[in-house]
Design a protein around this nucleic acid. Structure first.
Length: 311
RNA sequence: GGACGGGUGGGUGAGUGGCUAAAACCAGCAGACUGUAAAUCUGCCGCUCCUUGCGGGCUACGGAGGUUCGAAUCCUCCCCCGUCCA
């Protein structure tokens, strides 16, 4: 019964056509779309994060988008809570949840759960960061080596961000992160999950990325950034770290020329796509389709996988 | 025509006699990653051979010669590029 609830996950690198496929499937199967994307949860950052405009959603409800303001911090744990709720609601309505996943960590957090570790503490992080500033990254890694040898051996000394998180966990919980990570976690319960992975040929994907950046430009991306800055959103807030937003911010403050910025955004996006591919390759139980999500053949194959169509 | 400055590996750019297949950064390739994840980090990155080693060989710093045990580094001529003078 509860196992009869289904969840379709469409995962893949940026620009692989996840949204298009999700909308097509949702239309055919009475579904609703939910995003698994760390950037689309931010309000006002629309064009560059690739949110599907309302007019192009063909009436399909979209969830887990525009959850927080730019100055807020959003995390994988928060995503998991929200996504679980939304999933329940969609199922209660008797509809099929269709998840588009670009953020591997969030997907894992939702499907497999997170360790029972403490949430981040800004004060503690600040103190640790100051340590790094004064004594260097190696020093902080040395402390971790003393408090949690196993994590220290897994985290590169130069990876201050991860060293700080491991120390934070150890200091706040009293237990090494490595031990907490070994504990049983409860993942998503009661769903039969079908994972469809989009993996178009690399060269074609990169071309599409390049073209999409230009297209976003044509949609008024620069103006969007101008408005964001005009609203007084701190240029240092989280979403300004997202692909393109930092470059466009620099264009507006005269630190960079537009054409150079575009080239840089294209490049950074290609690099990001590669990182996503590296992550998703390890994801288990994925039905890979080596095509873009907006190709008819892809939808046909996906529908077949779901047993919705027989040929 | 003359005077300087410069031509280095895919790019930028250090290097002024041996420690240099040549810093650093970028790009590229591969990878890691359980609350910042569109983030953060790691490895490789001239060719080639094998007994895979702080291993061997070859090629490489505009071109051709030369000096030297040894040259990207010094000398000569030539070819390009930039600036200035005529």
């Amino acid at each position: 019964m509860s196992e009869h609830r289904r969840l379709v996950v469409i995962l893949g690198p940026t620009a692989s056509g996840k949204s298009a496929l999700a909308i097509t499937l949702a239309e055919r199967l009475d579904g609703e779309v939910l995003a698994c994307d760390s950037t689309q949860v931010y309000r006002h950052f629309d064009i560059g994060t690739g949110k599907v405009p309302a007019a192009e959603r063909r009436g399909i409800p979209h969830h887990l988008i525009d959850l927080v303001e730019p100055e807020e911090v959003f995390t994988a744990g928060e995503y998991r809570r929200r996504a679980t709720e939304v999933l329940e609601e969609i199922c209660a309505r008797g509809r099929l949840p269709t998840l588009t996943a670009g953020t591997g960590l969030y997907l894992r957090a939702l499907l497999e759960g997170l360790a029972d570790a403490p949430a981040r503490s800004e004060e503690l992080r600040e103190r640790l960061r100051q340590r790094v500033a004064r004594r260097g990254a190696e020093y902080l890694h040395g402390i971790l080596k003393r408090l949690d040898r196993e994590s220290a051996s897994r985290i590169a000394p130069g990876d201050t961000q991860k060293v700080i998180r491991a120390l934070e966990v150890r200091l706040l919980s009293g237990e090494p992160a490595s031990a907490l990570h070994r504990q049983e976690r409860t993942g998503l319960q009661g769903f039969q999950v079908l994972k469809i992975g989009l993996m178009p040929p690399r060269a074609a994907l990169y071309e599409r990325i390049d073209r999409r950046v230009i297209a976003m430009q044509g949609l008024g991306w620069l103006d969007e950034v101008k408005i964001l800055l005009g609203k007084g959103i701190a240029p240092t807030s989280k979403p300004f770290e997202f692909l393109g937003y930092s470059q466009l911010r620099d264009v507006l403050t005269g630190k960079m020329a537009l054409d150079g910025a575009i080239r840089q955004i294209q490049q950074a996006t290609r690099q990001y796509a590669k990182r996503q591919i590296t992550w998703f390759r390890k994801e288990r139980g994925v039905h890979w389709i080596e095509r873009f999500g907006d190709e008819p053949a892809t939808a046909a194959e996906a529908l077949k996988l779901m047993g919705a169509v027989k040929e």
